[in-house]
Nucleic acid binder design. Structure first.
Lengths: 143, 143
DNA sequence: TTTCATGCAAAGGATTTGCATCTGT
DNA sequence: ACAGATGCAAATCCTTTGCATGAAA
């Protein structure tokens, strides 16, 4: 639970982004904003207890990503994860239990320019940085 | 084409890793070693022209990754990419055409330790860093 | 009212798995 | 000979799509 966001705020956010504020979208975005980290579509839909369909979740998430309100994370091989847009940050993923922790950004300034040169690309617009390791809980269990 | 690797070398590599050097595995690993970047399983299998089955490719790649001879890359949402293990490095991905270019490592020393502290993890063992942008070719076409 | 979103079910694509057969060691 | 690998086909899992209906503006 990151913030406590009012339903009306969520509705306004959707409309500002040019999206219809349907019951389903409001519910989904509200859950996303209340989540403490990346969430799977299935988890999102299940936690809504039937408030919307899985297909709707996918379509809504697409719309949210397009509108810049959500971000798609590529971590697990098989399933997509989504999080509400916020400060640029990265993640630490426990390779044992899958737990994900947010990490504040820490790539040195100017790295995009260097990578652009090194790659021969015309432009670098974004990057993803994920750390993998063992969380405290799993480390304890392993002993 | 990175290196020119002999078939016998590939066989030895497999055996050293404790894997049976079957015709299929040798062919696959040889292709992987000769590839200039991450390859999809489908591409790998197709380029083998029937030397091995798609299922075999998946099973072989699993074995190679487990043995540390190959690495799985999470880039695209829908399909897995693999590359032969080599120096630690990263990638620049063209968001238009999907072209992938290798980038030499450039994360500052000590970042793992900092991330470990920040995340509360017991240990950080690895990380992935991918850059996204537009390659020169696509930039030209867009004009 | 007009346009766009939803639910449901069917389709799609990638990856995995069961099983009989074949191969490396 | 034996353990393990392969091919083929069926099965799974995640995600997308078509279409008739329902809801937002």
């Amino acid at each position: 639970m990151k913030h406590r966001v009012g339903i009306d705020t969520v509705q306004a956010g959707l409309r500002d982004a040019g999206l219809r504020a349907t019951t389903q979208r409001v519910a989904l975005l509200h859950t996303l904003l209340s989540s403490s980290g990346p969430v799977s579509v299935e988890a999102l839909t299940k936690s809504s207890k039937g408030a919307y369909d899985l297909a709707t979740a996918y379509r809504t998430l697409d719309a949210l990503v397009l509108a810049g309100l959500a971000k798609r994370i590529e971590l697990s091989q098989g399933r997509a994860l989504f999080e509400a847009s916020s400060e640029h940050h990265h993640h630490a993923v426990c390779t044992t239990c899958g737990k994900i922790v947010d990490i504040d950004a820490c790539l040195p300034q100017g790295i995009d320019a260097r990578v652009q040169k090194a790659s021969g690309f015309a432009a670098i617009s974004d990057h993803s940085l994920e750390f993998f390791g063992t969380c405290a809980g799993c480390a304890k269990k392993k002993v």
